[in-house]
Design a protein around this nucleic acid. Structure first.
Lengths: 344, 344
DNA sequence: CCAGACTACGAAAACGGTTTCGTGTTGATA
DNA sequence: TATCAACACGAAACCGTTTTCGTAGTCTGG
């Protein structure tokens, strides 16, 4: 076992000072050609690499980014994460992930830990519980301490910071219109409880489309599936109680469940009932019929978030200069597959 | 913006030395009650937290774990990751993820970077390219430098280190037997190229079952799907060329594709063709019919891997004491759903 | 009254780098 | 030959902790 070699060891071995070694390895012209060559050769031989921790301490920057997400076994979040990781890596940053597991407390604890020097800035999507509680002091806290923060997807209007969101309202509008163009008359919505602000935006787009296009908006055609459990029976009951010929779902799991139950009940998809879901994951691609879906371009979101964060990190803002924040919108796209029909 | 407060600042403010502050905060009995109370109160007021980086430098341990995986948008890996993250967090460790993207070079570069002080040990699953090249010097390298290494799932026999694997051979054997018990005669296997050693193990279990149970093992009934692209047509051709009444697939994507194509061709699942896949993900749960599948218990694997690593980290091995390595086996379980029939 | 023992604290080294600021030596110039 | 710049290098501070060791001052006992 050979420990990593340090400047000090090189210095001792070559009988020069630590400063000389440091400068020589940076090819400083304060050092003579001879000495530099000798030192560089030696360093190469022993595969010298500066210690990241020492650098972090000295430079007061870790080149680490903290990513806090509600869940990791989740197509959308992993997709975003991939984008973050790719971009960050290209720029020489590493990524530390903490999973809040939709819990407010875990989110708070994790962020506090990371804020004690482990990272230079945060990229996060807030937990469900945090949205419910409406308590964002931990976000304010880290920002006060000078950490740049980029929120994505589940963002908080009250917090001023950089944000990356999808055009949820718009694309839900488009999806709903697509149903109407198909000739569908009664479009339903299957969504989650509304403290998820993205769900709320999607619902708005859905309603606006119906109203603007002169179709009926019937509140009874909106099914709010409770947070955990009983989705199956919930959707089943919805079929029994209401009548509809198209369903917009806020995620792909709901969408395939709707298709499954519809087919069990003898409806044909898309002839009798059209379905569109959010999230272009594996389910959408391999369900039968394949699912028309809204691609959220999570990877792009991640890239953009990382880019915004790193820009803030590297353009250290001047003393009392006015801080400005941006909100980037990633355009979702509708991917047509076989759970919807042709335009009439 | 208030930067985090340091010992030095507290010391100056309270007109004591840095050492006194440090000791007082550790409740050392070298310091008088009065002084301690004063310092502790002040520290609490300003929410003092020791700087992780400084601690890392001092203690020569970061309390960070490096996780290197081939892909993150992948059910199994995220599941394992969740297990790692959970356990690590409980033990006060953070997790830095690097995605090799199945590339040898990225794997090497990422590990070198992490090894320069960012982490205390590695948990990894090697990339496809690395398995192909059969070049593991980067693993040896980090071990030589004293980093504990835990491999999971895609492990390397030539490397001596802690490992966590699934009983791939065994469970493939069981799955194959299940087909035979159902009364199936010609069991096919759909797999990936064999440099994935897990695929190889699964294939072995499959073959052993056929031979031991007195069924035919016909090499023509094994379909090797190329690494990227053309799965669809590949499977389609397989149906045209061969005849079989059961298919074991090494992942759930292959499994649902097989079911889809089978159904298109007019076969009934499971009456005409039974299907079992590996990976108990969303697809298995929501395909139609729902897929009988092999649950890999990734979360458990992650937990065990993290536990093994942290144990190594915390029981710093004595000088020249003999190092011992373990291989933990996680038992997979067969989850019966509707793509297989009843025992005859 | 003084040696010895506590008590309560501070100085300094160490972790591994970077960087500023000297400073001794050399060579050129007046 | 005296002066000065340029060259090549080293000392030391600093980043924020922990920890060892030293030491004033007070107290106790003989």
């Amino acid at each position: 076992m050979k420990r990593k070699i340090t400047l000090k060891q090189i210095a001792r071995e070559l009988e020069v000072s630590i400063s000389t070694v440091s400068k020589a390895l940076k090819d400083s012209d304060e050092i003579s050609k001879d000495t530099k060559q000798k030192i560089q050769a030696f360093a190469k031989l022993y595969n010298y690499r500066p210690n990241n921790i020492a650098l972090s301490l000295k430079n007061r920057r870790t080149k680490n980014i903290g990513v806090v997400i509600p869940d990791i076994v989740h197509h959308f979040f992993t997709t975003v994460f991939r984008g973050i990781e790719k971009y960050a890596n290209e720029r020489g940053y590493n990524v530390i992930v903490c999973v809040s597991d939709e819990s407010y407390d875990k989110e708070v604890v994790n962020m506090e830990l990371l804020a004690n020097g482990s990272i230079d800035g945060f990229i996060m999507s807030v937990s469900a519980e945090t949205q419910q509680k409406n308590d964002f002091h931990h976000l304010r806290e880290v920002m006060d301490q000078g950490f740049p923060l980029v929120l994505f997807d589940r963002v908080i209007d009250e917090i001023e910071c950089d944000k990356v969101v999808m055009n949820d309202e718009e694309i839900a509008y488009e999806a709903t219109c697509k149903f109407l163009e198909e000739g569908k008359k009664k479009v339903a919505l299957v969504t989650t409880e509304s403290y998820f602000n993205v769900s709320e935006k999607r619902a708005e787009g859905y309603r606006r489309a119906l109203v603007e296009q002169g179709a009926d908006y019937d509140p009874k055609l909106t099914l709010v599936v409770p947070f955990r459990g009983g989705e199956e029976s919930c959707i089943d009951a919805f079929f029994e109680e209401e009548e509809f010929d198209a369903v917009l779902c806020v995620n792909e799991v709901f969408a395939v469940q709707v298709m499954g139950i519809a087919q069990e009940k003898g409806y044909r998809v898309p002839e009798d009932i059209s379905v569109i879901g959010f999230t272009n994951g594996l389910l959408s691609r391999y369900s039968s019929p394949t699912l028309t879906t809204i691609a959220q371009h999570g990877e792009r979101m991640g890239e953009v978030a990382a880019e915004m964060l790193i820009e803030k990190l590297e353009n250290e803002i001047g003393f009392e200069e006015e801080e400005t924040y941006r909100t980037e919108i990633i355009e979702a796209t509708l991917i047509e597959r076989n759970s919807t029909g042709k335009k009439k």
